[in-house]
Amino acid sequence: MDPIISIKGLSKSYASGFEALKSVDLDIRRGEIFALLGPNGAGKTTLINIVCGIVNASAGTVHADGHDIVRDYRAARAKIGLVPQELSTDAFESVLATLKFSRGLFGKAPDPAHLERVLRALSLWDKRNNKIMTLSGGMKRRVLIAKALSHEPQILFLDEPTAGVDVELRRDMWQMVRELRTSGVTIILTTHYIEEAEEMADRIGVINKGELILVEDKNVLMRKLGKKQLTLQLQTPLAAIPPSLGGLPLELADDGNALVYTFDTQSEQTGIAALLRQLSEQGIDFKDLHSSESSLEEIFVSLVHGGSKGARA
């Protein structure tokens, strides 16, 4: 299937010489949720802004649903909705008026029924006649999403959609994003919250210092770079790992009170059963055990800081 967004050799340099993007290549698949992760200043927003037409690229090309974003900007932009990071709203306008404006701006004929659906889906229908300035931060964020959806985009960019949003609203938004995906909208989101990407994304891209370090299916990424560990709380502390267990990926922790076994989540045989048998044979008893897994956050930190392996849990 053709990618819905195809980015090739995209670079952005500012007059100061700062390179915000360095020859980025990226294909976004139709209908997926793609999360772009990266620390502050990594180039996430610059990338989005170029695709949406807000920032001029220094080099490279972008196609949205087959349309070049510069030469065929009308067709390309009509497909795209953008929810910006900043809560930039027309403070004195009513919610409904600002949606009507957005829909018209994107070349769509008035459709009150569609706007009502969007407002109801975002729990904004009751607030439709309120001035935006009277709404809470979370509500304003919803208004921005409603504006982006008012013109029925096929591609939706969410730039830090849940920044400064409380936990409940964040969960609501995740649900809304999933529903949008179900309706066929491709979603690209940037986030600081790794749990957000972990929760929602189909694929993850990691960007750092203007370079796309990695693009991977989330589950593959978790399997590839994620590690699982089994921690055994020992009855009697050990001074050292017995030589007969020397070939296993074991470490002593907690002053010899805990034995940590690291295993690969991808392999069919984790080796836990064999380990427990060997411990029994050696007369090493344990009073408790628990397993843990590296989170995407640790994988991300490890990638951004140049490590090749996921950090341990």
Binding site: C52, R74, R77, L82, S88, L105
Partner: peptide, 17 residues
């Protein structure tokens, strides 16, 4: 006003000449 309020993003990202 849209430049100051930041809402110019919408104008710049819209399919308008």
């Amino acid at each position: 006003m849209p430049k100051w309020a930041g809402t110019i993003y919408e104008l710049l990202s819209a399919p308008v000449s």
